[in-house]
Structure formats: structure tokens, C-alpha cells
Amino acid sequence: MTTLQDSKSNPPRVLPRVSKAGASKKFSPRLRYSLIVALFLLPSALPLLCFTIIPMFSAFWVSLHQWNLVGSMKWVGLDNYAKLISDPMTQSAFLHTIYYIVGYLPLVYIGGLSIALALNSRIKARNLLRGLYFLPVVSSWIVVALVWRWLLNPSTGVVNWLLGLIGIAGPGWWTDPSWSMPAIILASAWKDIGFIMVILLAGLQAVPEELHEAATVDGAGWWRRLFNITLPMLSPSTFFVIVLSLINGFQVFDQVYAMTGGGPNNSSQVVVQQIYDLTFRYGKAGEASALSWLLFLFILVITLIQVRGQKKWVNYA
């Protein structure tokens, strides 16, 4: 505002602008307006076009071919898709990914909700605690995966050592096919719980205090208020958390790559790891692109189903 005042009281400062406007008189105001729009939009529109939109369509084009990334492309139509759908490796990759989501989502949601509820009460050092819970969220997946690989080291890791102290023989975690997925789920939940907590906490803070007071006067206990007031009021945040967790869950990759690489015995091979392997290990770019598209469509359908179904349980006040 001060600058505006200045230009009013200080005519010479306005002058250069006037002359500039004079110089651009050769453009009609409409053309000038369009030029400014273009000038402002192109720096973001061009990269998005070149590095997101065009690649997306060319991925589909590649998926209709047999191609090893270097030689010439051979048209195969929808063969790649047919092959993938009947391929046991792809099926198990989808199953492992679903296993991951089924283990991960309840863990982060119930964990994140408990912490959010606690931090929403009159607790001391609330900001510090919130900050600590959020710390893993800003760390890189690779670091988290490496640190957890070390914590969960079957023979020399600190988790199995602690379990040993209370008389439990710890499992082989990432070295054991039946424990590799739980190990990944544990590390992922640890990393994301703070993120879920912050979103739910923001939702909780929007719940009017009067509702709780009125219910308390009516004799409703803590659990009753949780299920009849807090959770319904929190449903938009819950919806957001579930949609986002499913989208991200189907794309799980970094932690798998760094913790197990999909092993042992393909026991933690997830869809994106499979896409990576198909492209860069087996040189099957066509199949990899087809799998990317299958995954994308899968995520899209699941998200649309959720958006459709939200009317039934999400409560926008």
C-alpha cells in the first residue's frame, strides 16, 4: 500500500510506467492481455505438457508394442495387457501391494487418530510432541528404509535384541519371505503416522467444543462421544486420508526397493518394483508401460468408487 501512496505523491515515479504503456500502444489492449496470460502461463504449461502430458500418452503408445528400449518397436496391440493379466508374477505383485495397504492403512489411521486425539486434549508440550511425530515424514524414504533395515536386522538388530529381552525369538524380518512385508509395513507406518496425525488434528480442531459439552451434559461417556460425535465430524478428514493412502499405497516403491528389492523370493515384489524391473532389468518397456497404465487405471477406478461412495458416510457440515 505504501508504494501506491508513494506513486501518488511522487509523480516522477509514475512517468516511466506511462511511457511504457505508450510504447506498448502498438498492441491492442486485448492482445496485450493475451500476451501477459501466455507469458505467465507458459513457464509452467510447457514443462507440464512436455514432461507429464505427452509422456502419459506416449506411455500408452509404447504399451501397444514390444520394445527393449533400444531396438525398433514391434506392434503387438493389446497383447501386453493380455499377457500381464494372466501373468502370475503380475498377479502376485498386485496381491503384495494390496497386502501392504491392508496392513498399513489401519495401523496409520488408528495410530494417527490416537495421537491426534491425545494432542488435541490439554497436554503439555503439545507442539514439541507434534514436531517429533512429524519428523519421519520429512525424512527421505531411503534413509528410513536403511535405518529400519538396520533396526530389524535379524541377528544384530536392536528390535530382535529387545524382543529377546522379554523372551521372544524375533523373526527374520526382511530375510524371511513371510516377514518381509510386515517389516516394510512397520517402517512405512512409522514414517507416515505423523502426516496422518497432522491432517486428523486439523480436522479435530474444527469440531465445535459445544457439541462435546452438550453430549457430556446428556451423560455420554468418552467412547460414546468418540463414536457419535468425533468420528462423524472427522469423516471428511478420514475420507481424505483414505483416498490419499490408497493412491500412495498402490504406488509404494522407494522403501521396498531399499529394504528388500522385492525379495526374498519375490515375497515383497510390489507393482511399481515390477514396473522398474521389467524396464531396467528385463528390457521389456512395452510390458512395463502396459503395467503402468493398468496400475493407473486401477488407482483411478478405486478413487472414483470412493468419491462416489463418500455420500454414504462422509458428513460435510
Binding site: M56, A59, L69, I247, Q251, A288, S289, S292, F296, I299
Partner: peptide, 8 residues
């Protein structure tokens, strides 16, 4: 998802 774009 980034993964769809990786190959192209």
C-alpha cells in the same frame, strides 16, 4: 503417478 511416466 510418476511410474506411468517413467518409461516415456
Amino acid at each position: 503417478p510418476m511410474q506411468v511416466l517413467v518409461v516415456p
